[in-house]
Amino acid sequence: MFAREGARVFLAGRTQAKLDAVARDVAAAGGRADVAQVDVFDQRAVDEHAEGVAASVGSIDIALNAVSVMHDQGTPLADLSLEEFMRPIQGFLQTLFVTSKAVARHMGGNRPGVVLTLSEPGARLALPGILGDGVSAAGKEAFSRLLAAELAPRGIRVVDIRPHAVVDAPAAGSYTGELFAKSAAASGRSVAEFLGDGGLAQGTLLNRLPTLSEIAETAAFLASDRAGAMTATIANLSGGALVD
Protein backbone atom coordinates (compact mmCIF):
# COMPACT_ATOMS: atom_id res chain seq x y z
CA MET A 1 0.00 0.00 0.00
CA PHE A 2 2.81 2.42 0.83
CA ALA A 3 4.52 1.54 -2.43
CA ARG A 4 1.36 2.30 -4.39
CA GLU A 5 1.26 5.69 -2.69
CA GLY A 6 4.78 6.36 -3.96
CA ALA A 7 6.84 5.63 -0.85
CA ARG A 8 10.31 4.14 -0.95
CA VAL A 9 9.89 1.14 1.32
CA PHE A 10 12.42 -0.34 3.74
CA LEU A 11 11.39 -3.62 5.38
CA ALA A 12 13.03 -4.94 8.52
CA GLY A 13 12.11 -8.08 10.42
CA ARG A 14 13.18 -11.39 11.85
CA THR A 15 12.39 -13.76 8.99
CA GLN A 16 14.16 -13.33 5.67
CA ALA A 17 11.65 -15.41 3.71
CA LYS A 18 8.74 -13.24 4.84
CA LEU A 19 10.67 -10.06 4.08
CA ASP A 20 11.46 -11.31 0.60
CA ALA A 21 7.83 -12.23 -0.01
CA VAL A 22 6.63 -8.73 0.87
CA ALA A 23 9.41 -7.19 -1.21
CA ARG A 24 8.16 -9.19 -4.20
CA ASP A 25 4.64 -7.86 -3.60
CA VAL A 26 6.02 -4.31 -3.47
CA ALA A 27 7.90 -4.84 -6.73
CA ALA A 28 4.76 -6.25 -8.34
CA ALA A 29 2.95 -3.06 -7.36
CA GLY A 30 5.59 -1.02 -9.18
CA GLY A 31 7.52 0.02 -6.09
CA ARG A 32 10.89 -0.71 -4.61
CA ALA A 33 11.66 -2.30 -1.27
CA ASP A 34 14.95 -2.88 0.49
CA VAL A 35 14.99 -5.66 3.07
CA ALA A 36 17.10 -6.19 6.18
CA GLN A 37 17.02 -9.01 8.70
CA VAL A 38 17.08 -7.23 12.07
CA ASP A 39 16.40 -8.39 15.63
CA VAL A 40 14.22 -5.68 17.15
CA PHE A 41 15.40 -6.61 20.66
CA ASP A 42 18.96 -5.69 19.64
CA GLN A 43 18.90 -1.93 20.14
CA ARG A 44 22.30 -1.37 18.52
CA ALA A 45 21.26 -3.32 15.41
CA VAL A 46 18.05 -1.31 15.10
CA ASP A 47 19.92 1.98 15.53
CA GLU A 48 22.45 0.98 12.88
CA HIS A 49 19.70 -0.05 10.47
CA ALA A 50 17.85 3.26 10.91
CA GLU A 51 21.10 5.18 10.41
CA GLY A 52 21.75 3.25 7.21
CA VAL A 53 18.28 3.99 5.85
CA ALA A 54 18.58 7.69 6.65
CA ALA A 55 22.05 7.85 5.12
CA SER A 56 20.84 6.28 1.87
CA VAL A 57 17.80 8.52 1.32
CA GLY A 58 18.46 11.57 3.52
CA SER A 59 15.81 11.07 6.22
CA ILE A 60 13.08 8.80 7.51
CA ASP A 61 9.60 10.17 6.89
CA ILE A 62 7.36 7.33 8.07
CA ALA A 63 7.88 4.49 10.50
CA LEU A 64 5.34 1.72 11.08
CA ASN A 65 5.96 -0.52 14.06
CA ALA A 66 4.13 -3.78 13.33
CA VAL A 67 6.23 -5.89 15.69
CA SER A 68 4.38 -8.52 17.69
CA VAL A 69 5.30 -11.22 20.16
CA MET A 70 3.47 -14.44 20.88
CA HIS A 71 1.60 -14.18 24.18
CA ASP A 72 -1.13 -15.86 26.20
CA GLN A 73 -4.82 -15.22 25.77
CA GLY A 74 -7.46 -17.21 27.60
CA THR A 75 -5.69 -17.97 30.91
CA PRO A 76 -7.23 -16.48 34.09
CA LEU A 77 -5.14 -14.88 36.84
CA ALA A 78 -5.17 -18.00 39.04
CA ASP A 79 -3.39 -20.02 36.35
CA LEU A 80 -1.34 -17.26 34.74
CA SER A 81 2.37 -17.13 35.49
CA LEU A 82 4.24 -13.88 36.02
CA GLU A 83 6.35 -14.68 32.98
CA GLU A 84 3.32 -15.06 30.73
CA PHE A 85 1.75 -11.91 32.15
CA MET A 86 4.89 -9.87 31.51
CA ARG A 87 5.73 -11.32 28.08
CA PRO A 88 3.52 -8.97 25.98
CA ILE A 89 4.13 -5.99 28.26
CA GLN A 90 7.90 -6.29 28.09
CA GLY A 91 7.97 -7.40 24.47
CA PHE A 92 5.62 -4.87 22.92
CA LEU A 93 6.75 -1.83 24.89
CA GLN A 94 10.45 -2.60 24.50
CA THR A 95 10.11 -2.82 20.73
CA LEU A 96 8.14 0.43 20.63
CA PHE A 97 10.83 2.21 22.62
CA VAL A 98 13.71 0.80 20.58
CA THR A 99 12.19 1.47 17.15
CA SER A 100 10.77 4.90 18.01
CA LYS A 101 14.05 6.12 19.45
CA ALA A 102 15.96 4.81 16.43
CA VAL A 103 13.81 6.56 13.82
CA ALA A 104 12.86 9.78 15.63
CA ARG A 105 16.38 11.21 15.41
CA HIS A 106 16.14 10.99 11.61
CA MET A 107 12.73 12.70 11.37
CA GLY A 108 11.41 16.22 11.48
CA GLY A 109 13.93 17.95 9.21
CA ASN A 110 12.80 19.36 5.89
CA ARG A 111 9.70 17.17 5.99
CA PRO A 112 7.38 16.26 8.87
CA GLY A 113 7.65 12.74 10.22
CA VAL A 114 5.04 10.18 11.20
CA VAL A 115 5.34 7.29 13.63
CA LEU A 116 2.54 4.72 13.39
CA THR A 117 1.92 2.14 16.09
CA LEU A 118 -0.54 -0.73 16.52
CA SER A 119 -2.58 -1.72 19.57
CA GLU A 120 -5.64 -3.90 20.23
CA PRO A 121 -9.14 -3.55 21.72
CA GLY A 122 -7.85 -5.22 24.90
CA ALA A 123 -6.82 -1.76 26.08
CA ARG A 124 -10.50 -0.96 26.63
CA LEU A 125 -12.26 -4.29 27.04
CA ALA A 126 -13.28 -5.81 30.37
CA LEU A 127 -12.88 -9.49 29.56
CA PRO A 128 -11.36 -12.39 31.50
CA GLY A 129 -8.19 -14.10 30.36
CA ILE A 130 -6.45 -11.19 28.62
CA LEU A 131 -4.56 -9.55 31.48
CA GLY A 132 -1.18 -9.33 29.78
CA ASP A 133 -2.63 -8.48 26.38
CA GLY A 134 -4.92 -5.77 27.73
CA VAL A 135 -2.27 -4.12 29.88
CA SER A 136 0.24 -4.15 27.03
CA ALA A 137 -2.33 -2.66 24.62
CA ALA A 138 -3.10 0.13 27.07
CA GLY A 139 0.63 0.71 27.47
CA LYS A 140 1.13 0.99 23.70
CA GLU A 141 -1.64 3.55 23.40
CA ALA A 142 -0.25 5.58 26.31
CA PHE A 143 3.24 5.37 24.83
CA SER A 144 2.00 6.71 21.50
CA ARG A 145 0.10 9.58 23.11
CA LEU A 146 3.03 10.64 25.29
CA LEU A 147 5.54 10.27 22.47
CA ALA A 148 3.37 12.53 20.33
CA ALA A 149 3.68 15.26 22.94
CA GLU A 150 7.47 14.91 22.97
CA LEU A 151 7.92 14.92 19.21
CA ALA A 152 5.31 17.50 18.21
CA PRO A 153 7.71 20.50 18.49
CA ARG A 154 9.79 18.89 15.74
CA GLY A 155 6.81 18.41 13.46
CA ILE A 156 6.58 14.66 14.06
CA ARG A 157 3.15 13.09 14.44
CA VAL A 158 2.40 9.86 16.31
CA VAL A 159 -0.84 7.97 15.64
CA ASP A 160 -1.92 4.60 16.99
CA ILE A 161 -4.02 2.19 14.92
CA ARG A 162 -6.32 -0.04 16.95
CA PRO A 163 -7.71 -2.88 14.84
CA HIS A 164 -9.62 -5.83 16.19
CA ALA A 165 -8.49 -9.38 15.46
CA VAL A 166 -7.75 -9.42 11.74
CA VAL A 167 -10.02 -11.80 9.89
CA ASP A 168 -7.58 -12.74 7.12
CA ALA A 169 -4.41 -12.70 9.23
CA PRO A 170 -4.06 -16.51 9.55
CA ALA A 171 -4.10 -16.88 5.76
CA ALA A 172 -1.42 -14.19 5.53
CA GLY A 173 0.91 -16.22 7.73
CA SER A 174 0.54 -14.51 11.10
CA TYR A 175 0.28 -16.41 14.38
CA THR A 176 -3.39 -15.44 14.85
CA GLY A 177 -4.48 -19.05 14.67
CA GLU A 178 -2.08 -20.08 17.41
CA LEU A 179 -2.93 -17.02 19.51
CA PHE A 180 -6.65 -17.76 19.67
CA ALA A 181 -6.39 -21.56 19.74
CA LYS A 182 -6.89 -21.82 23.52
CA SER A 183 -9.93 -19.53 23.63
CA ALA A 184 -11.45 -21.20 20.59
CA ALA A 185 -10.97 -24.68 22.07
CA ALA A 186 -12.53 -23.59 25.36
CA SER A 187 -15.62 -22.45 23.47
CA GLY A 188 -15.78 -25.68 21.48
CA ARG A 189 -15.12 -23.95 18.17
CA SER A 190 -12.38 -23.79 15.58
CA VAL A 191 -10.33 -20.59 15.34
CA ALA A 192 -12.21 -19.63 12.16
CA GLU A 193 -15.54 -20.08 13.96
CA PHE A 194 -14.24 -18.22 17.02
CA LEU A 195 -13.30 -15.24 14.86
CA GLY A 196 -16.25 -15.49 12.47
CA ASP A 197 -19.95 -14.69 12.45
CA GLY A 198 -20.72 -16.54 15.65
CA GLY A 199 -17.65 -15.31 17.52
CA LEU A 200 -15.67 -12.10 17.83
CA ALA A 201 -17.20 -10.64 14.68
CA GLN A 202 -20.64 -10.83 16.30
CA GLY A 203 -19.46 -8.48 19.03
CA THR A 204 -18.89 -5.62 16.57
CA LEU A 205 -21.46 -3.15 15.27
CA LEU A 206 -20.58 -4.11 11.70
CA ASN A 207 -20.73 -7.84 12.49
CA ARG A 208 -17.32 -8.35 10.93
CA LEU A 209 -13.64 -8.00 11.69
CA PRO A 210 -11.21 -5.72 9.83
CA THR A 211 -9.09 -6.96 6.94
CA LEU A 212 -5.38 -6.48 6.37
CA SER A 213 -6.18 -4.31 3.36
CA GLU A 214 -8.36 -1.99 5.43
CA ILE A 215 -5.62 -1.61 8.03
CA ALA A 216 -3.04 -0.90 5.32
CA GLU A 217 -5.30 1.69 3.66
CA THR A 218 -5.78 3.42 7.00
CA ALA A 219 -2.04 3.41 7.72
CA ALA A 220 -1.30 4.98 4.32
CA PHE A 221 -3.89 7.69 4.93
CA LEU A 222 -2.61 8.46 8.43
CA ALA A 223 0.95 8.73 7.12
CA SER A 224 -0.08 11.15 4.38
CA ASP A 225 -0.47 14.92 4.45
CA ARG A 226 -4.24 14.36 4.27
CA ALA A 227 -4.07 13.44 7.96
CA GLY A 228 -1.61 16.22 8.76
CA ALA A 229 -3.62 17.51 11.73
CA MET A 230 -3.88 14.12 13.44
CA THR A 231 -1.53 13.22 16.27
CA ALA A 232 -1.72 11.81 19.81
CA THR A 233 -4.86 9.91 18.85
CA ILE A 234 -6.15 6.45 18.00
CA ALA A 235 -7.66 5.28 14.74
CA ASN A 236 -10.35 2.83 15.83
CA LEU A 237 -10.63 -0.08 13.39
CA SER A 238 -12.52 -2.38 15.74
CA GLY A 239 -15.64 -2.51 13.57
CA GLY A 240 -17.57 -0.92 16.40
CA ALA A 241 -16.51 -3.38 19.10
CA LEU A 242 -15.32 -0.25 20.87
CA VAL A 243 -17.09 3.08 20.49
CA ASP A 244 -14.95 6.15 21.20
Rank of each mutant, 00 (worst) to 15 (best):
F97A: 01
A33M: 02
E84D: 14
G30V: 01
V46Y: 06
D39T: 05
T95L: 09
S56E: 15
V57H: 08
V53T: 07
I60L: 10
A66L: 11
T95W: 01
M70P: 08
R32Y: 01
T95E: 05
V35N: 07
S68V: 05
H71I: 03
L96H: 15
S81R: 07
V26C: 04
M70G: 06
D72C: 11
M70F: 11
M86K: 14
A29H: 11
D20L: 06
D61P: 00
D72H: 03
H71C: 07
E51G: 13
P76C: 08
G30A: 03
H49Y: 15
V98D: 04
T99P: 07
Q43V: 10
Q73W: 02
A17R: 15
R32D: 01
H49I: 00
I60V: 12
S81Q: 04
A27V: 09
A23R: 15
G74Q: 13
D79V: 00
Q37F: 03
D72R: 06
A33N: 03
M86H: 11
V22R: 01
R32K: 10
F41M: 11
A55D: 15
A36N: 14
V22K: 01
L82A: 04
A29N: 04
I89R: 08
D72S: 12
V35K: 03
N65K: 08
S68P: 00
V46P: 05
V46H: 04
A78E: 12
V22D: 02
V57M: 03
E84S: 15
D39H: 07
H49D: 08
L80R: 12
R32G: 01
A33D: 04
D20R: 04
L80T: 06
D34T: 11
T75I: 13
R32E: 02
A54P: 10
V57T: 07
V53S: 03
A45W: 05
F97Q: 12
A63S: 08
F97R: 15
V67L: 14
R87S: 14
G52Y: 07
T95I: 03
R44H: 07
G30C: 04
A63Q: 05
E84C: 01
I60N: 12
T75L: 10
L77P: 05
V57K: 05
D20A: 08
D34M: 07
E51K: 09
A50Q: 04
V38M: 10
A28R: 15
A21W: 03
